[in-house]
Structure formats: C-alpha cells, structure tokens
Simulated assay, not measured.
Amino acid sequence: MGAMSSHDDSGGKNSRSDTATARLVEQGIEFHTVLGRTVALAFLKEHQVPADIIYRILGSSTGRRQPAPSITPPPYER
C-alpha cells in the first residue's frame, strides 16, 4: 500500500507527503484529546492507519513529530 507509506523517494526519510494519512492522524489525535484513547484507536484502525504510526502517536507523549507548516493539511472532515 504505497499510499500509506511514511517515507519519500529522497532516501527513505520520514515525511508528511501522505496528506490523507496526515489528516487521519490529526483527527485521531483530536479524538484522543477530547474522547479518549479507545475512540482514537478505533478511528485510526478503522481508517487503516499503520500500526506503527498509531503506536507512536498514542503510545507516548514524545512520539509525535511537530507538524511541518508548509505541508500540514487541514483536519480530516467527513
């Protein structure tokens, strides 16, 4: 599933070039803050966010990278 990849073609470094996943992650973080871990986890799994990303963002407060202003998309909306 190349669309869910967390690396780019410039050497495999992590990036936020996958705006769809970035939106889902932002919404999942908002759910975590407002509704709790269980709801956030269910949302992220339902939308096929990779397990390593889910673990990183929900597993610790230091696991999340700071958003890059130039490519951070608006929050996911249904």
Rank of each mutant, 00 (worst) to 15 (best):
M1S: 04
M1Q: 03
M1T: 03
M1R: 05
G2R: 01
G2S: 01
M4G: 10
S5E: 06
S6Q: 07
S6H: 07
H7T: 15
D9W: 04
S10D: 11
G11P: 05
G11V: 09
G12K: 11
G12L: 05
G12H: 03
G12V: 11
N14K: 14
N14L: 07
N14Y: 04
S15E: 01
S15P: 00
S15N: 15
R16G: 15
R16Q: 15
S17D: 06
S17I: 07
S17R: 12
S17N: 08
S17L: 07
S17K: 13
D18F: 02
D18M: 08
T19M: 14
T19G: 12
A20M: 06
T21R: 15
T21H: 04
T21E: 07
R23I: 02
L24N: 03
L24K: 13
V25Q: 11
V25L: 14
V25T: 04
E26Q: 15
G28V: 02
G28N: 05
I29L: 15
I29G: 02
I29D: 05
F31D: 10
H32L: 08
H32A: 15
T33R: 14
T33E: 13
T33V: 09
V34A: 11
L35C: 05
L35M: 14
G36W: 00
R37S: 06
R37L: 08
T38D: 14
V39T: 13
L41T: 07
L41D: 01
A42Q: 13
A42N: 11
A42G: 09
F43I: 09
L44I: 04
L44H: 08
K45D: 01
K45P: 00
H47S: 07
H47P: 01
H47W: 08
H47F: 12
Q48G: 02
Q48N: 11
V49H: 05
V49W: 02
V49M: 06
P50F: 02
A51H: 09
A51M: 05
D52F: 04
I53Y: 01
I53G: 05
I53A: 12
I53W: 06
I54N: 13
I54Y: 03
R56G: 04
R56H: 03
R56D: 12
I57E: 03
L58E: 11
L58W: 07
L58T: 09
G59D: 07
S60H: 09
S61E: 05
T62G: 07
T62V: 13
G63R: 06
G63H: 12
G63N: 03
G63P: 07
R64T: 13
R64H: 05
R64V: 09
R64K: 12
R65M: 12
Q66S: 12
Q66L: 10
Q66T: 12
Q66M: 10
Q66W: 03
P67A: 10
P67H: 11
P67M: 05
P67G: 12
P67I: 01
A68C: 07
P69M: 01
P69G: 13
P69Q: 04
S70M: 06
I71D: 09
I71Y: 04
T72C: 10
T72H: 15
P73E: 05
P73S: 11
P73V: 06
P74S: 14
P74I: 11
P74M: 06
Y76Q: 10
Y76F: 15
E77K: 15
E77I: 15
R78C: 10
R78V: 11
R78Y: 05
